[in-house]
Design a protein around this nucleic acid. Structure first.
Length: 302
DNA sequence: ATGGTTGCGCTGCAA
């Protein structure tokens, strides 16, 4: 069996996902079952709300059992990002060169590593809070600095995370509802546009140019049930990576049921690279492990 | 309806 599993692994592509889980601690059963169901190769998490030490204590054993290497960057309470990978996790960087601070502190909003030959970033872009507030300026400065850092980085790159920006009006349920609010303003979209000018592709929109596709729905007022959401969780890929995209979708089923995050995972499948180099691939465990507890993802009907 | 929910953590703030 071993050689067969290894051969299959070497022939498949790479599944990269990004998911703002809104507290790992509250999401452990769902996260583990979701990993077993979707079997992603590289996972970018945001809003972990755990220190690096607490992340390892909470998930280390379960992730190792599933073949994932991991690295996290956290501060507890707020923010926090992590990377899981079973196609290599090399040259881990916490934060990025020139990352702006907030109130004198560099927040835990970025981590990156080389996974399967691609530098993958897990990003939690500052929210911005109110238009033209100090936090809004921080958001724009943070994105500009990120663009500079990425521009100086390797050609094979994927920026994955919660950008807290809807790239276009089609990415919100009702543009009129957002007038005067963050996430949709010209300066924010211009900050996002810098990545496009640098050659990065918004993989989901490229794949589904006309479809209504959201990744975040407010917890309040039945917004998810009515599909009143936004698309703010993005995968921006450079040409060598974007050219390998075989599938790209939002896993809405993960937003349903009990104790969901308010974000759904964005899933991107890449075909095997032209040179076939995926890095070391760790075979999956022989059988999926059931998480403790009873939470199950409901079956999608819409 | 100036509303609604969740997380963190214990008071109200962030999202």
């Amino acid at each position: 069996m071993g050689p067969i599993i290894a051969r299959r692994a070497s022939l498949r592509g790479v599944r990269i996902v990004t998911w703002n889980v809104n507290s790992v601690k509250q999401r452990v059963p769902r996260l583990l079952q979701w990993l077993d169901e979707r079997r992603p190769d590289v996972v970018c998490l945001q809003e972990t709300k755990l220190t690096e030490e607490a992340f390892g204590a909470l998930l280390g054993e379960e992730l190792a059992a599933r073949g994932y290497a991991f690295a996290s960057h956290g501060q507890g309470q707020w923010n926090g990002v992590a990377l899981l990978s079973r196609v290599g996790l090399d040259a881990v960087e916490r934060g990025f060169a020139g990352q702006p601070a907030w109130s004198g502190k560099e927040e835990a909003r970025a981590i990156s590593a080389v996974c399967g030959g691609v530098r993958v970033h897990s990003l939690y872009v500052p929210n911005g809070r109110e238009v033209d507030s100090d936090h809004f300026a921080y958001k724009l400065a943070w994105l500009a600095a990120l663009a500079d850092a990425v521009g100086a980085g390797p050609a094979e790159v994927a920026l994955c995370g919660d950008f807290n920006i809807a790239p276009a009006d089609a990415d919100v349920f009702d543009p009129a509802a957002y007038v005067g609010h963050t996430h949709v303003t010209p300066p924010e979209r211009a900050a996002l546009g810098v990545f496009g000018a640098g050659g990065l592709t918004d993989v989901l929109r490229d794949r589904w140019p006309e479809e209504r596709v959201f990744s975040y729905w407010d917890y309040r007022a039945g917004m998810f049930h009515q599909d009143l959401g936004m698309r703010i969780d993005l995968v921006l890929a450079s040409a060598p990576v974007a050219g390998r995209v075989a599938a790209a979708w939002v896993d809405r089923a993960a937003r349903k049921g009990k104790l969901p995050s308010d974000h759904a995972p964005v899933i991107v499948d890449l075909d095997v690279a032209p040179d076939g180099d995926l890095g070391p691939v760790v075979p999956p465990p022989s059988a999926p492990r059931r998480p403790r507890g009873t939470v199950r993802l409901p079956q999608s009907k819409d």
